[in-house]
Each structure stands twice: as structure tokens, then as C-alpha cells.
């Protein structure tokens, strides 16, 4: 399974094996990982699964939809150019070794 690494705001790193097809939000919340809330359950409504990705890995992701773009305007910590919603990132074999940074807070 592809390995996804989560880097917490204070620097702690945790790597999870994520089944292809699952979202990064689902992997994080079902593992009980701190810092990713996903309170709407992955329906692209709440912007509480905000992550930023490594700039040199951004090209591995499909372009964001208008909905995701609009939601990122409402994140608790202001969005960065490399911000994404982890509920919209479906894991593929190409994402093995992908790294996401978890913001200081989501709400």
C-alpha cells in the first residue's frame, strides 16, 4: 500500500499505509491521527481536513475543483499556495511517499 507521511505543526511525523482509493482524510481520521478533523465526513463542505503538500509533489495531484478552491478560503489557518483538502485526495500508487503537513488547527 502507498505510504503517506503526516507532519504535525510541531514537527512530529507519522507514516500510514493507505489503501489505494481511500482519501487521505479517511486514512487519518480512521487511524485517530490528531490534527485532521473532517467533521463533514468527506462531503467537501467543512474545510477541516486542510493540509499543505510539498511544493515538488503538488504536480502528483489532479487540479482542484472550484468547490475545493472556494472551501479553502474558509480554512481556520489561512490557505497557502500548496494547500489542499485531504478529503479530496484519493490515494493512488503514484502517491507512495507523499507528504502532507497538518496545520496548527482546523477549527
Amino acid at each position: 500500500m502507498p505510504e503517506i507521511t503526516f507532519v504535525q505543526f510541531h514537527g512530529a511525523r507519522e507514516t500510514l499505509d493507505v489503501a489505494v482509493g481511500n482519501t487521505i482524510m479517511f486514512a487519518a481520521t480512521s487511524h485517530g491521527l490528531e490534527g485532521i478533523v473532517g467533521e463533514c465526513g468527506g462531503n467537501a463542505m467543512c474545510a477541516t481536513c486542510h493540509v499543505s503538500v510539498e511544493p515538488d509533489q503538488l504536480h502528483l495531484l489532479p487540479a482542484m475543483t472550484d468547490d475545493e478552491d472556494a472551501l479553502l478560503d474558509g480554512t481556520a489557518i489561512m490557505r497557502q499556495p500548496n494547500s489542499r483538502l485531504s478529503c479530496q485526495i484519493h490515494v493512488t500508487p503514484a502517491l507512495d511517499g507523499f507528504v502532507v503537513h497538518v496545520p496548527e488547527r482546523q477549527i
Binding site: 481520521t29 473532517g38 467533521e39 465526513g41 462531503n43 463542505m45
Partner: peptide
């Protein structure tokens, strides 16, 4: 951890 509960529904009609 309540993520995934369906109290607000889920999918395209999830409570707006």
C-alpha cells in the same frame, strides 16, 4: 471520533 456519522446525512444531499 464521530467522523462519518450520518446525522447530517452524507453525499450530495448532506445537510447544507
Amino acid at each position: 471520533k464521530t467522523v462519518g456519522h450520518v446525522g447530517f446525512g452524507s453525499g450530495v444531499h448532506a445537510c447544507v
